[in-house]
């Protein structure tokens, strides 16, 4: 039971890294991408190959994955940003399909459908990360670091420019900023962060195959960002936690297993539709609403007391 909980929390932390990084592109950059799982996969395969053939150093794996992930990001962004921004989602879909094919078919490198197995535990400063607890600590720390980085980034001049880009691209270019360049950097950065999650995933599960990096996974990451609140620092982690933990809660309902998947998907679909209509800022938007109400209610109670 403990290890089940730990594993659930590890997957939540991974989802937080993925959703937060996708949020840079989707929430702040305003580009809809359904290829985020590709970068997760590139990170995972990079770490696996490195661990199987060269070194299981976690630091080295992360550094290499950041490079390969960043390059994969550019591979998507350079051609995709030549077309009009509305087509970015189409370009990203194409990229996801191509990448899935490569993961599945390039047997010599990715191990094809069977994937790569027998990945040794990662080592960090001489320690082997081989227990659930150790994985949980490392993954949580990195998820916290990613959140801190995203928050700091959005307060920096880069974040300001990115939010300005979302508000009015032409105005931004009239001020001297190259919007395409800004988007390129954002996609690459987001891909780099996602690939770190891939590294942690590969070492945790000790095997990777294309199943984990499909279009479905990319779409689920988008769901996390939108349910939580795109373009906010705390929305995507909340959405990630919800999407990861909700199915686990659902399994306590003792539904027939054939119903679990459809019920999950229906729930996400209904929630997303309702949020789009009533609260586009997602869970974060709902929390803000509750807080505003509380402040107002407190204000009323306070003045009532003053009157009495």
């Amino acid at each position: 039971m403990i290890s089940y909980l730990e594993s659930l929390l590890i997957f939540t932390a991974l989802a937080i890294i993925l959703a937060s990084s996708l949020n840079l592109v989707l929430g702040y950059g305003g580009m809809f991408s359904v290829a985020h799982a590709v970068f997760y996969g590139v990170g995972a395969y990079t770490a696996s190959l490195l661990a199987l053939h060269l070194s299981n150093s976690l630091v080295l794996s992360i550094l290499c994955a950041i490079i390969t992930g960043g390059l994969a990001g550019l591979l998507l962004a350079v051609p995709a940003l030549r077309v009009k921004e509305e087509y970015f989602v189409v370009a990203s879909l194409g990229f996801q399909i191509i990448a899935s094919t490569v993961f599945n078919q390039w047997d010599a490198v990715t191990g094809g459908i069977g994937g790569l197995t027998g990945i040794p535990p990662a080592s960090l400063f001489g320690y082997e990360i081989d227990s659930y607890g150790a994985h949980l600590v490392v993954t949580s720390l990195l998820a916290a670091a990613v959140l801190a980085i995203v928050a700091a980034l959005m307060r920096s001049s880069f974040g300001r420019a990115l939010r300005a880009l979302r508000d009015d691209e032409q105005a931004l270019s009239s001020l001297g900023r190259n919007p395409t360049h800004l988007r390129l950097v954002t996609v690459a950065l987001s891909a780099m962060i996602a690939s770190v999650a891939g590294v942690l995933y590969a070492y945790f599960t000790s095997f990777v195959n294309p199943e984990s990096f499909t279009l479905d996974e990319s779409v689920m990451m988008m769901v996390m960002v939108i349910i939580g609140g795109a373009g906010t620092v705390w929305g995507p982690p909340l959405g990630a936690a919800f999407v990861t933990i909700f199915p686990a809660l659902l399994s306590f309902l003792k539904l027939p297993s054939s119903l679990l998947g459809p019920v999950q998907r229906l729930t996400y679909g209904v929630i997303m539709t309702l949020l789009m209509i009533y609260e586009p800022a997602g869970i974060v938007g709902l929390l803000r609403w509750v807080r505003r109400r509380q402040i107002i209610l407190n204000g009323i109670n306070g003045s009532n007391r003053a009157a009495a």
């Binding site: 001049s157 300001r160 420019a161 508000d167 105005a171």
Partner: peptide, 16 residues
């Protein structure tokens, strides 16, 4: 940029 503050609007111009 309507979602940015006055300062941020001008800062973006400055940094662009």
């Amino acid at each position: 940029f309507p979602t940015l503050t006055v300062f941020e609007n001008v800062a973006v111009a400055c940094e662009a």
